[in-house]
Each structure stands twice: as structure tokens, then as C-alpha cells.
Nucleic acid binder design. Structure first.
Length: 458
RNA sequence: GGAGGAAUGGCCGAGCGGUCGAAGGCGGUGGUCUUGAAAACCACUGUGCCGGAAACGGCACCGGGGGUUCGAAUCCCUCUUCCUCCGCCA
């Protein structure tokens, strides 16, 4: 949520941001909110006056209980009416404000959708960064990216789709996953499962080396955790709700779609010391997503599934630190992509495509699938400034002794399923085998994944 | 699952239904004293909202919610959390 006073004083800018971020103007109705805000303040003033009277009457009660009783009863009635009125106003006022997007970084590109995202950089293993002239908006750099599987050597062949490779290797089983759990569920097994573990090891070692605090969080959370990071109310339809029975407390719990809400909620209602900021954590957890609204999209394979594993990086920091952490996370993303020798680009997300309401600035890392000739999103780095910290009440005491809201920054360390897809695609060989990226060979104790079947039976 | 007890400010800990935002202590900040430090002494020391340029003023908050009352930290109901004992499970 944004600062109430700021919203009131900068209503025109807020309306503009609602438009730029493509938020439903009926849900984030700024004019209605302003009217309610006036109402709220008027009522608060009235309530304060009545309470002040009540206090005086209470004192009078010692000397003259009878007249105090008479006046006091009237005041109590008045007070109850005002409180009821206030309750209704606050409910609507809050509901509108829940849909106000965060302020946006002055540097965030303006645009309508993904076609207006700005390419920050693009990198190709063995070649390095593209020239800035080769970058642009939308998919400008695509024509400069490798046209065929980049780790396949010189031999000419028709690249296989990763879903086919996964099945041939006997490492991705969506059929049995579907039988056990339904569509968009899969088993990973054998070398592909092993490869996920190796990536996990590679990244966690590095994060620990860099001083990030490992965290194993709860995955079933109460509503407030998801509200706090602004995954609610906006993304409510993306989340699995668990109807809890046979438990102590029969309230709904929700399966997290990312460990971000549960990781940041570790800090909620807390006041941190400035000296311990930035506080960086990472967690490796399963993530659960309903994918409502994209049924029928990416139905094959494991690109878009209801459950996947992800390493998430989160930081709680001061306002002065968030830009730096945002850059640091991006650098961490590039480190992993380069370690795995995968071609990628980074795009600066435009106002029309900048993700959830909390975004102040956001960039995506997209791996280049050299086998299938397309980019695929694998990481999202987001500076949410104080938006989430406000909702979660995460504050710090500054050197001057004053309390301020922290900033929060989050980034995907590694989305496992998609990273595996990217490796299968980029490291595929003519015979359907897949080379193991150099950096994973020692952990996996092998340098090649070999097909169990030469072709997929369908 | 059963039986008890508890929840007060950064921490510890008082608090007969009325003048309690709340004693006292610890911690913290500033000052006096000292060459410096310690000790001692003095003062200040919660958060949020509203009004105000500010000084300052008003209101709310004693685990959460509701109730009784002219008036609630104090009484009642309820929820949550923690502790002790019994049982069960790992």
C-alpha cells in the first residue's frame, strides 16, 4: 500500500499511475477514495470530540453521578452511531486502496505491454554481450541470438522441442503426473531430477558464500501474508486455498505461489535495526499456482505447471539501499546464467507489463531457447520500495532514532523447471542426448544425459 | 484430548471500576561533576491518527475481538498465544 498522505496530496499522479499500470479504474477509483478519505477524517474528528466529552463526563461522575449518567448515555448512543458509520467508510476506503499500485520509478519505461519492454542487455556464451545497437524494445535482439542449439557443435540437425527431449531421456513424466494429480503436474526423475539437485547445490553454495541467510519457511500461510506482499487481493485467483479440517484452528490457509510472501512475512510487525540491513535471505521451496486464466496455454510439458521448485532471493533494506540490492540481485541472476552458459537477455519491464501492484521497478531475465528460437522468462527482479513493508509493517529505526518503513526487493534465484527446460533446449545434441553444463558435471558425476528411447512413442 | 495458570511500555514488573499512557526498576539519550572514565545526582525517554507553518493541542492503544457501565488495564463473553500437570503421538 502507498502512503495515505502522499496519495491524498498527489491524487492526479496516482490516477495517472493507475492508468499507466493498467489497473482497473473501477477497483482503484481515486476520486471515490478521496471522498471517502474526507469522510473518514470528518468522522474521526467527530469521534474524537465525543470521546473527549465522554472523558469529561467520566470525571464528573465522581461528584455528580446522576447527571453524568444522563449525559453519558446520550454520548454513548452518539458514539455508537459514529463508530458504525466509520466502520462502513473504512471498509470501502480500504478496499479501494488495496488496488492502488505502487509509485513507479522515474526510470520505468512507459508502454502498453511486453512489446514496449526495453532490453537492458543480452549475453551469449562464448561471445559475450551484444552491442547496445543490437538492443531495443520488444524482441529486437532475437535476430542476433544463436539460431540453432548453441552447445551442439557443428553438426546440422532439426532441434527437438524440450518436451520431446524430456520424455526421450525418461526424465520428465507428465502422463503419470496427470494420472496422479491432474494436468500440469509432472514427475522429474533420473538424471533430470539429479540435474535439478545439482543446480540447487550450485546456487545455494554461492548464495551462502555471499552471505545470504538460508531460510526454510512455512508454505501454508494465512491470508495476511499474501495480502502483505500484494498477492492479494489482485492475484487471489492464482492461489490454492486449503479448506482446513481436523486442525486446531479452522480458518483457510493458502499454498504459496512463491516463497516471497512467506519469506517477507518473517519480518512482519517487526522493527529492525538499521545496522542489520540489508537483510538478505533465500529459500528453496515448491511453489503452487492455479494458473487460472491461462488454462489452455502451455499445456504441454513443464513450462507452466501447478507445482514447481524455486529458489527465491529476498532482501529487506533501507530506502537508500533498495536500488543497490535490485542491481545486486540482477548481478546474481547473470552469474547463474553465465555459470550455466545459457544465452539470455534482461528486459526492463514497462509500465504496462510490470507485474503486480507492488512493483516500483521490475526486470526479467529471459533465457534464449536456441533450439526453438524464442525467449522464455526465468527470473523476475522487483524493487517494491516500501509498498510491501507498509502492509507488513516492517520498519527500521534509523540513526536519528526515527522509525521508517523498510524497502523490500525480491528476485527469482532460479525457477528450476524452466531452467531445466532451457538446458535441455540449449545443450541438446543431434542424437537426442543432452550435454551436461560444465559447472554441473562434478556434482552430477556425468557429462551427458542419454536417451532411454530414441524417439517418443505417441 | 482433559485440568489449571498467565498475557501490561525496548526489557523486568506494580496496578481498590474513576484524576492511569499507566508506579518502580533496568536499559537508552542529554546534562551536572571529572584531566578522562566509572559512580552519584538531575532531566528526558512508546506507537498511530487528526488539526496546526510551528509551538502545541485532541483522540486511540495495557495479547485480538465483542459486551456491561456515566466511566474499564481493572468486571463479563470469546478467540489467540505461552506456561504447568495428565493423556496421546512422533
Amino acid at each position: 500500500m502507498i502512503d495515505v498522505k502522499h496519495a491524498r496530496a498527489n491524487a492526479d499522479r496516482l490516477k495517472e499511475i493507475v492508468r499507466l499500470r493498467k489497473v482497473d479504474p473501477a477497483k482503484a477509483d481515486v476520486d471515490r477514495w478521496l471522498a471517502l478519505d474526507d469522510e473518514r477524517r470528518r468522522l474521526q474528528w467527530d469521534i474524537d470530540q465525543v470521546n473527549s466529552e465522554k472523558k469529561k463526563i467520566a470525571a464528573l461522575g465522581r461528584s455528580d453521578p446522576d447527571s453524568a449518567r444522563r449525559k453519558g448515555q446520550e454520548l454513548r448512543e452518539r458514539s455508537r452511531e459514529l463508530e458504525a458509520e466509520m466502520g462502513a467508510v473504512i471498509r470501502e476506503w480500504t478496499a479501494l486502496m488495496d488496488w492502488f499500485p505502487n509509485l513507479i520509478d522515474p526510470g520505468m519505461p512507459e508502454g502498453a505491454g511486453p512489446e514496449d519492454n526495453v532490453e537492458e542487455c543480452a549475453w551469449i556464451p562464448g561471445r559475450g554481450y551484444l552491442d547496445s545497437a543490437q538492443l531495443g524494445r520488444g524482441d529486437h535482439s532475437a535476430e542476433f541470438m544463436p539460431p540453432r542449439p548453441i552447445h551442439a557443435g557443428g553438426e546440422e540437425f532439426a532441434p527437438r522441442h524440450y518436451t520431446e527431449l524430456g520424455e526421450m531421456l525418461g526424465g520428465v513424466d507428465t502422463l503419470q503426473g496427470g494420472k496422479v494429480s491432474g494436468s500440469r503436474f509432472a514427475y522429474l526423475l533420473g538424471d533430470v531430477a539429479l540435474m535439478q539437485m545439482a543446480i540447487h547445490r550450485l546456487l545455494t553454495d554461492e548464495l551462502v558464500r555471499r552471505g545470504y541467510t538460508p531460510m526454510v519457511p512455512p508454505l501454508l500461510v494465512r491470508e495476511r501474508a499474501l495480502y502483505g506482499t500484494s498477492h492479494f487481493p489482485e492475484g487471489r485467483d492464482q492461489v490454492y486455498e486449503i479448506k482446513t479440517h481436523n486442525v486446531e484452528e479452522p480458518i483457510p490457509l493458502f499454498l504459496v505461489g512463491s516463497s516471497e510472501p512467506t519469506n517477507f512475512s518473517y519480518f512482519m510487525d517487526r522493527t529492525l535495526e538499521e545496522s542489520e540491513l540489508p537483510f538478505r535471505v533465500f529459500a528453496a521451496t515448491p511453489c503452487f499456482r492455479s494458473e487460472a486464466g491461462s488454462w489452455g496455454k502451455d499445456v504441454k510439458g513443464i513450462k507452466r505447471v501447478h507445482q514447481f521448485d524455486k529458489i527465491e532471493m529476498n532482501a529487506v533494506c533501507t530506502p537508500g539501499q533498495s536500488d543497490g540490492v535490485y542491481a545486486e540481485f540482477s548481478e546474481m541472476n547473470e552469474w547463474l546464467m553465465q555459470q550455466l552458459a545459457l544465452p539470455y537477455r534482461i528486459v526492463d519491464k514497462c509500465t504496462g507489463d510490470a507485474g503486480y501492484l507492488a512493483s516500483y521497478r521490475q526486470r526479467d531475465v529471459e533465457v534464449w531457447m536456441s533450439g526453438s528460437g524464442e525467449f522464455m522468462e526465468v527470473m523476475t527482479d522487483t524493487n517494491t520500495s516500501d509498498y510491501q513493508a507498509r502492509r507488513l509493517k516492517i520498519r527500521y529505526r534509523g540513526g536519528d532514532g526515527n522509525l521508517r518503513h523498510c524497502h523490500t526487493v525480491n528476485d527469482t534465484g532460479c525457477a528450476m523447471g524452466r531452467m531445466l527446460i532451457a538446458i535441455l533446449d540449449n545443450y541438446q545434441q543431434a542424437d537426442g542426448s543432452v550435454r551436461v553444463p560444465d559447472v554441473l558435471r562434478e556434482t552430477m558425476r556425468k557429462d551427458r544425459l542419454t536417451p532411454k528411447r530414441t524417439e517418443v512413442e505417441r
